[in-house]
Structures are given as C-alpha cells and as structure tokens.
Simulated scan of single mutants.
Amino acid sequence: MSIRVVVADDQEIARHGLRMVFDGEDDIEVVGEAADGLEALGQVERRAPDVLLIDIRMPRMDGLEATRRLRGTDGVAVIVITTFDLDEYVLEALRAGAVGFLVKDSSADRIIDAVRAVARGDALISPEVTRRLLDQFVASAPARVGDPALASLTPRERDVLLGIAAGRSNADIAAHLHLEESTVKSHVGRMLGKLGLKSRVQAVIFAYETGLVAPGTAPGSPDR
C-alpha cells in the first residue's frame, strides 16, 4: 500500500519539485497539493493522507497554524519543510505538533526517507539541529518536574520512554530490554496514549521537561 502524501507550499515550482521527488517511488503517492494552510486543511480532510509536507511561510494561513489545527487529527503525520534552518521555527513546529522538520535544500533521498520514517511512526529532525534544539526547548519550556502523568506509566513503559529519549529505535530498545520489537511497539503506543502525546519527538521533549532525562545526559540523538 502506498504512502499517501499531500504537499503544501505557496510556490508552484516548489510543489512541482517535491512531486517529482516522489514520482519514481513505488511506495509513495502524492494525492494532493495546496498553496496555503487553509487549502492544506481541506486537502487533508478530503484526501486522508498519511503524511503532510508543509511549508511554514504561506499566505492566509501559515504552516504552523495549519499544523496546530491538525494536532488532534489521527492518521496524518506532519513534516514541516522550509528554507530556514532556524531553531525558533523548529521549536514552534514541534510545539504545533509536527513530527518532522526538514530544510528545502535536503537531498531527494533524505526527503523520501523522512516521509517513510514518519509514515511508520518514527520522528525525524535534521540531525544538525537536534541536540541544540532539545537543550533550547527545555530551557524555554515551563518546568513539569513531578508531572503526575509519569505515575500512570508502568515500569516497562517508563523504560521504553527512557529508550526513546536516548535516541534508540524500537529495535534498539527491544535488544536493550530483551523484548520482541512488536512488544516494544505496543509499549510505545500505550505510553504515548497515556501521556497524551502524538509522536516520539513529543515523548523526548516530555522526558526532558519532566526531569526524567537531563539535557546533555542521554546518549544518541532523538531523530531516529
């Protein structure tokens, strides 16, 4: 089954370029295009894509506001793609509910890999911004130490959250905890549900905000 993608950018040439990136991929299909955030919301409603690739700066409604409005929508993963590799944009995109962030000069292979990654439930941020981004996000966010939501997790779900915060994939977590990968995937889903989170990126941020992990102490990077 193909991954269904909607592309939103106010520049027609940019939309055309992204469509061409996916044209040769048997497992990815562009099912809609939008020139602004309002059109993107309409395309998501009508086309039910798996992934929305959306620019930040657009008329009428920008990509961040569109992403915020989609935050409670099941089934669509949002990747923000922009010309500007600026931390404040990444921060706002994550707060809005995006699960991926790419700059427009990313290679075609990287964009394709990003769509596949978020479609299977992973999160992706350009690795060059990941570590400094987390430190800045935690520094700027309200402290949530002692958040009662942590108490709702089982010991195993807490272990899985720590693994995600350490940048481990499901396979890595499974090997580390001596579990089946399918079991880890189930734990991840239950953990996200209990915490009211939509993505692994948000789980990493939650772990840092609540003091479960201190900035700079978790090995690896959470962009996997």
Rank of each mutant, 00 (worst) to 15 (best):
M1N: 01
V6Q: 13
V6G: 12
A8P: 01
D9W: 05
D10V: 09
A14P: 00
H16S: 14
H16F: 12
H16V: 07
H16A: 13
L18G: 07
R19E: 13
M20N: 11
M20V: 12
D26Y: 01
D27S: 07
E29H: 15
E33V: 09
A34P: 05
A34Y: 12
D36K: 01
L38V: 10
A40V: 00
A40M: 02
L41M: 00
V44C: 11
E45W: 08
R46K: 09
P49H: 03
D50E: 07
D50L: 07
L52E: 07
L53D: 00
L53A: 08
D55G: 08
D55A: 04
M58Y: 00
M58T: 00
P59A: 03
M61H: 01
M61G: 02
G63D: 11
G63P: 05
L64Q: 03
E65V: 11
E65Y: 08
R68D: 15
R69C: 13
L70N: 03
L70Y: 03
R71C: 04
R71D: 12
D74M: 08
D74L: 11
G75D: 09
V76M: 05
A77G: 03
V80E: 04
T83L: 09
F84I: 00
D85S: 06
L86M: 12
L86Y: 13
A93P: 10
R95P: 02
A98T: 06
V99Y: 07
K104Y: 03
S107T: 14
S107L: 14
A108Y: 09
I112T: 15
D113F: 12
V115S: 07
A117C: 10
A119Y: 05
R120M: 14
R120V: 15
D122V: 04
D122Y: 09
D122Q: 09
L124Q: 02
S126R: 10
V129H: 01
T130L: 14
T130C: 13
T130M: 14
R131L: 13
R131G: 06
R132T: 04
R132Y: 04
F137A: 11
F137E: 02
S140V: 07
V145F: 13
G146I: 14
G146E: 14
P148N: 12
A151Y: 11
S152H: 14
L153H: 02
L153A: 06
T154C: 12
T154F: 12
P155Q: 08
P155I: 13
E157P: 07
E157L: 12
R158P: 01
D159R: 00
V160P: 05
G163Y: 02
A165D: 02
R168K: 10
N170C: 01
A171Y: 08
H176Y: 06
L177G: 01
L177P: 00
L177A: 02
L179P: 00
L179Q: 01
E181D: 09
G189F: 00
L192H: 06
L192Y: 05
G193Q: 06
G193K: 10
S199R: 04
S199N: 10
R200Q: 13
Q202M: 11
Q202C: 08
A203F: 05
A203L: 04
I205W: 06
E209I: 14
E209T: 15
T210V: 12
T210I: 12
L212N: 04
P215I: 15
G220D: 08
G220Y: 06
S221V: 03
P222I: 00
D223P: 01
